[in-house]
């Protein structure tokens, strides 16, 4: 047993209604698509990006997502997208030793607000707190859990505005260059990097999105 499992509460915040509507739209629009995958992308907002329906390619999209997923579940990403309300730490993603709590805004609470230890930049040296001016967890009303999610679940969650921080396609694409996301590739001494370079990740991310943002079957 890893110590974190003791505290872990897997929150199945994935909303059934959202999933069903994805499915419904899919079934009407995408009958020709391989039955092995389903698109997580939909909605009128994204018409701009998906004006050309011919660009949608479920195989390419799902392939790209497997790369994206390998990054999202790597410690640099998953540690701040925990299933519970306590972030994870280290390459083994153990529960953060001093049990800081998410708090309403995702910035910690009481004696352990993130910025009490996490500075605006990485503190130098091994075992020191990493940093960023906007260091935080997802807020309490939008937890964006990565921990424990399958690729399929995570793909659907990422495309659900009710679960992805109300991001539309444009905002999702832009998110690849978010300062806190970029931190993952400059995480400070002693932390492993995500399995892909940021360039590769961004490419896969956009490929996934632009090809229909299909969710893998599993």
């Amino acid at each position: 047993m890893k110590s974190k499992t003791g505290q872990k509460e897997i929150r199945h915040s994935y909303k059934l209604t959202a999933a069903l509507s994805v499915l419904a739209i899919l079934m009407t629009l995408m009958v020709t698509i391989s039955a092995r995958s389903e698109s997580a992308a939909f909605g009128s907002k994204d018409k701009e990006v998906f004006a050309d329906q011919r660009k949608r390619d479920s195989v390419k999209s799902v392939e790209a997502f497997s790369k994206v997923y390998s990054v999202l579940i790597s410690p640099r990403c998953v540690n701040c997208h925990p299933a519970g309300d306590v972030p994870l730490q280290g390459d083994d993603s153990h529960l953060h030793a001093m049990l800081p709590q998410r708090g309403k805004e995702g910035k910690g609470m009481l004696t352990m607000k993130c910025a009490n230890c996490h500075q605006s930049e990485n503190t130098r040296g091994p075992h020191t707190p990493p940093g960023n001016p906007n260091w935080h967890l997802p807020p309490a009303d939008m937890k964006m859990v990565f921990e424990g999610k399958s690729a399929s679940e995570l793909a659907k969650q990422l495309m659900d505005p009710a679960q992805n921080g109300h991001k539309d396609m444009k905002a999702l694409i832009a998110h690849a260059d978010d300062a806190l996301v970029l931190w993952g590739w400059e995480p400070g001494d002693g932390r492993t990097l995500p399995p892909l370079s940021h360039k590769e990740f961004k490419e896969a991310w956009i490929t996934w999105l632009k090809n229909g943002a299909y969710a893998p079957e599993k």
């Binding site: 730490q89 280290g90 030793a97 001093m98 049990l99 091994p126 075992h127």
Partner: peptide, 13 residues
């Protein structure tokens, strides 16, 4: 192990 992040000490909780 060389510091408390790796050397686990009992804590208040």
């Amino acid at each position: 192990k060389n510091n408390f992040p790796s050397y686990r000490m009992i804590r208040a909780n």
